[in-house]
């Protein structure tokens, strides 16, 4: 009994007090900043080393929907710098493409204001309580573990009234991870159809957004994304829980 009390005392209070203001350690590879003046002659080396073809040159841009944040481009070129900024979610696919012109040097608040559009009806409908059904469709267990971690004692997403539900029937939305393997495509569609309308659709991680590293695989079936509109894109490989929670709170207008 004494040990139990000691354990409880040692455990202390682990939750991050203010998720909205939380900063990640400087080593974290998050939102990349592009400084085009450092890009001397459009040599294209950054584009060549990128494993997922996320980089375009002239003008230089990185597509966060494809980026796996491996940091290889940063090592070959001074024009690209990954920062510890983790608030990189977006409601539009196009806004995920980071260029020097639109976002470089701007604070994350400005990126956020542009990238995430808060809709009144979403705020009204889901702003106070949101239950999500997660479907892993070919995910490697990286995104899945980070989404699980959103509910743990450190991040405690439940404090915002946001939880993962066991049944799609109890859910207001779906969170998709993984590139959508051929064998999971029907189950994903079934899960989506089982969620009562109105519902939101979230794609978390590079694989879900663009196919990521598995884009060329012949065993994918990404028809789901041709039929269903994504409401919120959360980049990362995998997305950090703080990225996920903050993007969601921005989206809900909290």
């Amino acid at each position: 009994m004494l040990n139990l009390l000691k354990l409880r005392w040692n455990h202390g209070y682990q939750a991050i007090p203010d998720i909205r203001k939380a900063e990640l350690m400087v080593t974290h590879r998050g939102f990349p900043v592009i400084n085009e003046s450092e890009c001397k002659d459009n040599c294209g080396e950054c584009k060549d080393v990128c494993p997922t073809e996320a980089i375009e040159i002239n003008p230089l841009s990185i597509d966060l929907g494809k980026c796996t944040f491996c940091g290889e481009c940063e090592r070959v070129c001074a024009a690209i710098k990954f920062t510890n900024e983790c608030r990189s979610g977006s409601t539009s696919r196009n806004n995920l493409i980071v260029t020097s012109k639109n976002f470089s040097g701007l604070t994350s608040d400005v990126y956020r204001n542009r990238a995430i559009e808060t809709r009144k009806e979403i705020h009204k409908m889901f702003g106070r309580s949101l239950k999500l059904r997660q479907v892993s469709a070919g995910g490697c267990n990286g995104c899945e573990m980070e989404l699980s971690a959103c509910g743990n004692v450190n991040f405690d997403m439940g404090r915002f009234g946001i939880d993962f539900a066991a049944s799609p029937r109890h859910s207001d939305g779906i969170v998709i991870t993984g590139p959508v393997s051929r064998n999971m495509a029907p189950a994903l569609m079934d899960a989506y159809n089982s969620i009562p309308s109105p519902k939101i659709v979230i794609a978390a991680g590079a694989c879900a957004i663009s196919g990521g590293i598995f884009k060329e695989s012949e065993y994918l079936n990404r028809e789901f994304f041709e039929k269903i509109k994504i409401d919120l894109f959360i980049p990362g490989c995998p997305p950090h829980p703080i990225t996920f929670i903050n993007s969601l709170l921005d989206f809900l207008g909290r």
Partner: peptide
């Protein structure tokens, strides 16, 4: 259900080392 054909994806001769490394990291993300 998760089959992505990883073994075959290693065989494309145009793939760069970084790509193959990324792929090996994603065999099991844990």
């Amino acid at each position: 259900f998760q089959h992505r054909g990883i073994e075959n994806m290693f065989l494309n001769k145009n793939h760069k080392n970084v790509y193959l490394l990324n792929l090996s990291e994603s065999i099991a993300g844990d």
